[in-house]
Design a protein around this nucleic acid. Structure first.
Length: 184
DNA sequence: GATAAGATGTTA
DNA sequence: AACATCTTATCA
């Protein structure tokens, strides 16, 4: 039996970015490291689209943002403040710059105690090598599986974190009362 | 080629 | 509230 049978379908990511950000809550990010597989439930996300000045794809395709224009389900990893990586899932459609930032996970394997996008990537050994890999490919060392469905009553939608432009947009989603959601 | 700013996290 | 730390974008 294939341990990756529950991987997300391409159509899941090929939708409106805010929908994907909402639906990704409860899904499982998986990372293979050697013979071990680490899993974490996604509990906090943020949506970024091309029209949004806070999005790295806002000014069009650049060397850094080019991943955001790949097909839905592609990973976009970038370095922030010279020391932390952040992981995005590309959404919507090819050649349109949009994605969902994964901000926090609930650890389902030990040793993954994290909160916040930077530590998340440190724990999962996500670096520039992961950039532009396909998160929906069963042969990849990192992928996303379907998890539990989060009812609307347990989803909180608020403003995004740590940005200057359009900071009031309520494009951040997290699971209510979940201990692993980042603070700030 | 130089420079400022940044989707963060830790420390005081 | 300061700071660590470096790539990218945006000038010149």
């Amino acid at each position: 039996m294939n341990e990756k049978h529950n991987i997300l379908k391409r159509e899941f990511c090929a939708r409106n970015t805010q929908i994907v950000a909402r639906e990704l809550l409860g899904c499982i990010l998986c990372r293979k490291s050697g013979s071990e597989i680490f899993r974490g439930k996604i509990v906090e996300t943020e949506a970024y689209v091309q029209e949004d000045a806070a999005c790295h794809a806002h000014k069009g395709r650049t060397k850094r943002s080019s991943s955001l224009f790949e097909q839905p389900g592609t990973a976009y990893v970038y370095l922030i403040y010279g020391m932390y990586n952040c992981l995005n899932v590309v959404t919507d459609r090819k050649d349109y710059g949009s994605g969902v930032l994964l901000r926090a996970l609930e650890p389902l394997s030990s040793g993954l105690e994290t909160n916040g996008p930077g530590k998340l990537c440190r724990a999962f050994e996500i670096n520039s090598e992961v950039n532009k890999t396909d998160l929906l490919n069963p042969n990849s060392d990192i992928w996303i599986e379907y998890g539990e469905k989060i009812p609307d009553g347990n989803v909180v939608q608020t403003a995004r974190v740590g940005i200057k432009h359009n900071a009031h947009y309520p494009w951040r989603f997290y699971i209510k009362d979940n201990k692993w959601v980042s603070k700030r």
